[in-house]
């Protein structure tokens, strides 16, 4: 049985179910209690699970991320929210040096089963410091499992797995998708981490896209007379390169569209994996599309200018033929 719920409801359901399922799971972050999160992602959880399990924190990402690390090593399973993905940088040392590296430098003796989640992405006129997509930052630091959510189905199933996983997981919903609706099973389910999903099958070109860009890619391809295969990586690190490569072996063409900045972004990395390992399966050079190499501006015409639009994606696909 399925029903339609919003993406942000799916996020809240994932946390709710994991709090109910496992006493070791706790949720903390700024404004996660009565306020319910900026997008409603923690609504109702405090009333249901109480203040021991759902805790407001003082305003410091350093404290939130650092405490999550210690709590995880200490034997519980923290789920910690940063209000915007950009704030990964305000907890820079914790996010880049401590959490992903402590299990490694311990020789695997230390376990840090924590999940940090943070709404990412542009499109709401939130400006340069509240709009970034940071999976390229995080993917560059081995030790993080980096997961994005594209649909309500993904959001719930992947978030539940993130919480259950024994690695540090950075889970990135997209704020523009908060109110989008989609089918989600009534019954309990999880989705595998580290596995890409073939969302649409096609023979002519492989388009790799996630979060908002997945939806824009679908919009872009609706009117094209090209048979497009769309792959949603879901987990960016470690990346399921094989599913993408297998698709390119079939289609011979690759377009990677992502909301990370083009310069040193995810797009280049994914394209390079194919160029280095599957060059002779390509009938055309790979096309990479991302945020232009500027900070994300506020004014809507400026903001839309730097984000990949459906038109830019369509043009990118057509340029390969």
């Amino acid at each position: 049985m399925t029903r339609e719920i919003t993406y942000v409801q799916a996020v809240a359901e994932a946390i709710d179910e994991e709090l109910a399922r496992d006493d070791d799971v706790i949720l903390f972050g700024e404004d996660v209690e009565e306020f319910g999160g900026n997008f409603g992602e923690t609504e109702g959880l405090y009333q249901k699970h109480g203040r021991d399990r759902v805790r407001n924190t003082p305003l410091s990402e350093i404290g939130i991320a650092g405490m999550a690390l210690g709590a995880a090593v200490g034997g519980i399973r923290p789920v910690a929210e940063l209000q915007f993905a950009d704030f990964a940088a305000t907890a820079g040392d914790e996010v880049f040096n401590q959490i992903p590296k402590q299990p490694y430098v311990s020789g695997g003796k230390l376990k840090a089963p924590l999940t940090i989640f943070a709404p990412s992405g542009a499109g709401i006129g939130a400006g340069a410091q509240h709009s970034q997509s940071v999976h390229s930052w995080l993917g560059n630091v081995p030790g993080w499992v980096v997961v994005t959510a594209t649909t309500p189905y993904d959001a719930k199933g992947l978030f539940k797995s993130a919480i259950r996983d024994d690695n540090p997981v950075f889970f990135l919903p997209h704020k523009m998708l908060s109110e989008t609706k989609g089918e989600v099973p009534e019954e309990e389910y999880t989705l595998a981490l580290g596995e890409a999903a073939v969302e649409e099958e096609g023979d002519d070109v492989t388009v790799v896209a996630t979060q908002l860009m997945f939806h824009r890619a679908r919009e872009a391809t609706a009117d094209l007379d090209i048979d497009v295969e769309i792959i949603n990586p879901r987990t960016f690190a470690p990346l399921d390169t094989e599913t993408i490569a297998e698709s390119v072996r079939k289609t011979g063409r690759l377009v990677v569209v992502d909301e990370t900045v083009e310069r040193y972004g995810t797009q280049g990395h994914i394209a390079n994996e194919i160029v280095e390992n599957d060059f002779f399966s390509l009938d055309a050079p790979p096309k990479t599309i991302g945020v232009k190499n500027v900070p994300i501006p506020l004014s809507p015409p400026l903001e839309q200018e730097v984000l990949p639009s459906a038109d830019r994606i369509a043009a990118g696909i057509e340029s390969l033929f």
Binding site: D24, I26, D52, I62, G63, A65, G66, M67, A68, L69, G70, A71, A72, V73, G74, G75, I76, P78, D93, E94, N97, Q98, Q102, V105, S106, K109, L110
Partner: peptide, 30 residues
């Protein structure tokens, strides 16, 4: 680090070990 002896280890970026210690205390309390 020696988790069996409850030695968490060290944040070699000086001054980053105290928030994890707060988290360890939280875990014990929970």
């Amino acid at each position: 680090s020696d988790i069996g002896r409850k030695l968490y280890g060290h944040a070699a970026t000086i001054g980053s070990g105290q928030n994890p210690a707060v988290g360890l205390a939280l875990a014990e309390e929970i």
